[in-house]
Design a protein around this nucleic acid. Structure first.
Lengths: 345, 345
DNA sequence: CTGAAAGCGCTTACAG
DNA sequence: CTGAAAGCGCTTACAG
């Protein structure tokens, strides 16, 4: 009993023998199927408990008609990043309601890593996949989808047959935030952005450009820093911009790590009260900084919940034939002070 | 090809038939086992690719001698909380090295929820479990462990046969931080703590008491607030303490959400520069607040990595007989200003 | 309502 | 080196 090592676990067969019934009856009782004599139900239940029977879900899904494993998988950029983990949690909650478990993995924005994860998950026959795609795996996603596995992509738009997406209004959110800066009188606005291969980075830059176009002003390329991958990179870029000639009077940081890096740079130069800053995506205690950091806030919980619902309805079957649906979740501007600073005159 | 619905997937049998070899040979080739004629290896590999064969890992583990599923599960308090998600990421990285996937779930500190998760995971025959235990599931953990599944508990100490633990030096970390406050001259130090059912909450309070005992002073119960479950609760408690008679000159918050709540309260009263604050567990941009928030920092990545290594070595077998090992990861005091404020005279 | 048989997709002795 | 057979733990027609 103590040495769990090589002990054969107790199977339905054991329970059947012990209870003096057929294997099929045990299966029916364990699965709560109707049409078994109450007396047998009692005997089987009792025996199973006495013997310490543990149902084997993987074996059962193998033989089961629908072949469902009651697991879905989540491919994120990094399970530890706040946006991803909030999304993860929302997916977990939606899955739990249907008794579905979730596997998760981090691609680190590497297509190769994303491919391996999708591969490993499908080899385990997960019932569905929610992926935050790097953008270089469309054919693989299409193939997996073609083989029958439902997929929902989050955060980034992809156009694949029967692959739903849940994204956020990156472009509009950015446009309206930058517009505010312009309304305050800012004319030299810097843009800090992530890798151009990332759909959201392109969308946010487009929104930035929109706000300039609307005012009939060209984007000043010298104030644009794209391809920034870390807080440190944003810190360095911001410091350089502010210590150069004709420095920006406002900074728009298109991602939360970049926002933190930019803010760190502003505080390093002691100008956090003079140079405006707006970030895309919220982060913890942004409101406790002085001044508070204004942001275009996303709603990762809604993104995750929506994605899970779309996925689970396809997994349940019935509506898996419907064409891809593309849901856009709105963002919300949160004014906390840093985005309300007028240009230094 | 487009309608993935009810299409039978291609099996090893199909590949065998098509390649004109036996089923066993296909299995050998797919699993990269030695001792198959090169010509057959080629033919099978080719045919498998041509037919779009996808190995079924769950079916294979069912028949396999070791019955391993190459998955482990993680039971956290909340996958979205920064400590948990950093730990999760470290576990994922260690597991990836061995081709192992990870399932994760959130207990929300509810024993019932934790039980359900452990149950669901073991029904899926995961190879091992890493759990951040609520503290009320010891018998279940012992039973699961007794049935053969390796388990490592993190963050909280439990004493179960052959269940390793990885914890942090909560008591010492707290003791030495509170000691610093005393050295600065603080005599009225408030303590904000989480639920008493949580092992770490008790340990941290013990460290708090140690620092008082060492100075021959009793803990002032009126300054102690335990059982706080949220940022809001900490906010309210702190506000009440500071606006009452003989207010504390320093606050020790024994958990990161509580630290944020306390800090929000201090800023609400405008006394963040006058009342000292030290928190247990770091949080993002704590250094960007004014003053920066001093903390006793934990190292979730090391906790996760260590736990994963302990678990995986037991999963690989060989050393699963060894008694439980209890690893303690050190904490580190990070001075940022708020903990260095002397008492108001 | 019940059970013996077949079989899910694979791996593993076993015999050649 | 190779393949036919048995079987992992279960579910599902099928016949009674």
């Amino acid at each position: 009993m103590q040495d769990g090592e090589r002990r054969r676990s107790v199977t339905m067969r054991d329970v059947a023998r012990q209870a003096g019934v057929g294997l099929a009856t045990v299966s029916r009782v364990i699965n709560g199927k109707p049409g078994v004599a109450p007396e047998l139900v009692r005997r089987v239940t009792e025996t199973a408990r006495a013997l310490g029977y543990r149902h084997d879900v993987t074996a059962s899904s193998l033989r089961r008609a629908d072949r469902r494993t009651a697991t879905i998988a989540l491919v994120l950029e990094d399970v530890a990043n706040p946006f991803s983990s909030a999304l993860h949690r929302a997916v977990e909650d939606a899955a739990r309601e249907e008794g579905i478990l979730v596997l998760a993995g981090s691609s680190d924005e590497l297509p190769e890593r994303e491919r391996e994860l999708i591969d490993a998950f499908t080899l385990r026959r997960v019932d569905g996949l929610i992926v935050l795609p790097t953008g270089s795996t469309d054919e693989q996603l299409a193939a997996v989808r073609g083989h029958g596995t439902p997929i929902v992509c989050v955060d980034r738009l992809v156009e694949i047959d029967r692959v739903d997406t849940v994204t956020v209004d990156n472009r509009d959110g950015t446009w309206s935030a930058v517009r505010r800066l312009r309304a305050l009188g800012h004319r030299r606005i810097a843009f800090l952005g992530d890798l151009d291969s990332i759909w959201t980075a392109r969308q946010r830059f487009a929104g930035f450009a929109d706000a300039h176009a609307e005012a009939g002003r060209p984007v000043e390329e010298r104030l644009v820093r794209r391809g920034l991958r870390s807080e440190e990179a944003a810190h360095a870029a911001t410091t350089r911009l502010l210590t150069g000639g004709e420095p920006p009077t406002a900074v728009f940081a298109a991602q939360n790590l970049l926002t933190m890096g930019a803010r760190r740079a502003l505080q390093g130069l002691g100008v956090q009260e003079e140079v405006a800053l707006i970030g895309f995506d919220d982060f913890p205690v942004a409101d406790l900084l002085t001044p508070g950091v204004s942001v275009v806030a996303q709603d990762p919980a809604t993104v995750g919940r929506t994605a899970a619902r779309l996925l689970l309805s396809r997994v349940r079957g019935g509506d898996d034939h419907r064409p891809a649906r593309h849901v856009v979740v709105p963002t919300r501007y949160v004014a906390r002070g840093s985005g309300e600073i007028p240009p230094r005159t």
